[in-house]
Design a protein around this nucleic acid. Structure first.
Lengths: 225, 225
DNA sequence: GATGAAACGGAGCCGACTCTCCGAATCCTA
DNA sequence: TAGGATTCGGAGAGTCGGCTCCGTTTCATC
């Protein structure tokens, strides 16, 4: 919101091209892909990249913001479903579909946590999701031993299939079906072990800076095996 | 198996240290992390890194091989379970646990596909897994509309939680429970949509070079939103 | 169309990373 | 413990990507 004067048409066009190509490039090669290549792909000079985005971090932040805006667009349909169970179905399906179609998102989220850990737009979704879960559980359709965080984690798990590229796109709904069947309230379900997490922890988790090292010990296979 | 002469003790020790630190480093910062930092972390000079691994690709290949060896160690317990269903449980649990504890694996697999797409050790697992699935389905415990590939994909999904770092480690079994409940044969399951994939396709998928671009279009949110 | 302002392109500087080379240090054998 | 071979350490050459600067081009307005 600096000056309300419209930028020139060519500037606006280049800005859009850069965002579009950045999503493709970051999805393919990670958020550290050379920005000179971004320039080439977008058909502009390197200088133009830096005119639009002060540096890589600024570009990542803008991609992050458009992602959050996407989520806001999805919310009404999901939360407004006729039954609580239908909301759950839509939540998993729409969000997983979006994640799979936006494979740059996980890397951008993780990098944002490094750039500015205090930046948490979208925190307002927490209450809505918790309400959705409570509704479906009161209705008797969703098993009562899962939490809103568990659902969000399942969404991320399904979304991780986006890493597998376009070849997998026709198949992820198979896993979605299995997960949804596992979420139904049923007398003979195995109880979910342990306690759920708070929603705050989910933000930190889904934006994890990277795997914490402690878990990785030496492989039992010394070397030349 | 080049020369059977043992390397010097310090050489062997450094080789192990480098592998251990490489797993940590690649998990934290990706497979493109600077090798000079690997040297620092392992407490050796940069020259030593290149004495042990001709280049980054050689290091990645060796990490890949130790991972495949880990899998060979896991196979007997999983395949030798008393019931078909128990095999399925162990397959999901043990492999997911391993993946989560080895967060360098996905990146290393993807990079290996780039380095040498023809290198596919572990292809011999396909028949064993297919047999395990057939056994559990014949037994009536595993739903019949899932394939061996579906299970492998579920393992990768669970394993993707390793990306979330140590903070999540106590929780992934919650999602495992849900998935297992979704895999049980039940009269009122939702049929899994579409056809399953061949196992060959799974190798290419799990080693996907990176998300194929086609799926990522522009966000509907032009820019300054 | 002329004019001023805004945006563009790309050459080039700077810092970071990869990998090499060789004198110094360490290890094994006798 | 002495000798010979192997390995180590780190300085430095070469390369690559991030980012800047400014002459040139494009755009909006009159």
């Amino acid at each position: 919101m600096t000056s309300n004067a419209s930028p020139r048409r060519d500037a606006r066009r280049n800005h859009e091209r850069l965002l579009v190509e950045a999503r493709l490039l970051f999805a393919e090669r990670g958020v550290d892909a050379p920005l000179d290549e971004l320039a080439t792909r977008a058909g502009v000079g390197p200088g133009t990249v830096y005119r639009h985005f002060a540096n890589r971090d600024a570009l990542i932040r803008e991609l992050y913001d458009t992602g959050v805006a996407d989520l806001h667009d999805l919310a009404p349909e999901i939360l407004g479903a006729e039954t609580g169970w239908r909301s759950i179905e839509l939540y998993l399906e729409r969000l997983a579909e979006w994640l799979i179609g936006s494979p740059y998102v996980p890397a951008v989220m993780r990098r944002m946590a490094v750039i500015d850990p205090s930046y948490k737009p979208g925190a307002e979704f927490a209450d809505a999701i918790a309400g959705m879960v409570a509704r479906a559980q009161a209705e008797g359709s969703l098993r009562t031993d899962v939490t809103a965080v568990d659902l969000s984690v399942l969404v991320d798990m399904l979304g991780s299939l986006g890493q597998y590229g376009g070849a997998y796109l026709p198949f992820w709904r198979r896993q979605l079906t299995i997960v949804l069947d596992g979420l139904r309230a049923r007398p003979d379900n195995t109880p979910v072990p342990g306690d759920g997490q708070a929603f705050d922890e989910f933000h930190d988790m889904s934006h994890a800076k990277g795997p914490r090292p402690a878990a990785t010990q030496a492989s039992p296979h010394p070397s030349g095996e």
